[in-house]
């Protein structure tokens, strides 16, 4: 199964919409609620990262009996220092974004905690690709 959603950079009024849609779809497929909870946290954070930092993004969902892969690709400024970005508390978010309660430097750490695999590729001034893998029969 395959699905795709668009994410608009900078548009906080729609942040979380793609994640909500995917979550509804996964619930209808009767996946383990514990896995759905982990997926919801990780994909929401990936979606918000696009909204807060990038210009435009695509969220791709691929699902088979074994695993679910969520790929979020954006066009945007890219991440200068991935190791630094993975640190809890580090953020390059603007003051406005922080005042809304985003940009606490917890997004990528939240993704790491909840996904079974996180693969992050980024090119400066091009964009970022975040690949999340969740194994469905994993304990």
């Amino acid at each position: 199964m395959h699905a795709q959603y668009e994410i608009q950079g900078g548009d906080f009024t729609k942040a979380g919409l793609a994640s909500s849609e995917v979550k509804k779809m996964l619930k209808q497929l009767n996946l383990d609620p514990k896995i759905i909870k982990r997926i919801a946290v990780a994909m929401y954070e990936a979606e918000v990262n696009v909204v807060a930092h990038a210009y435009h993004g695509i969220m791709d969902i691929e699902l088979n009996t074994e695993k679910i892969i969520i790929k979020v690709q954006d066009t945007g400024p890219g991440i200068a220092d991935i190791d630094k970005a993975m640190e809890e508390g580090f953020s390059t978010a603007s003051k406005e974004v922080r005042e809304m309660g985003f940009g606490a430097g917890m997004g990528l750490p939240n993704i790491k905690k909840n996904a079974d695999e996180l693969i992050l590729n980024s090119k400066i001034n091009k964009g970022t690709e975040v690949k999340l893998v969740f194994y469905l029969n994993h304990q």
């Binding site: 906080f12 942040a15 979380g16 919409l17 919801a40 929401y44 309660g101």
Partner: peptide
Amino acid sequence: HKNIIAVASLKE
């Protein structure tokens, strides 16, 4: 702001 609802909904 509206994003609190998305968070509450995703986290149930």
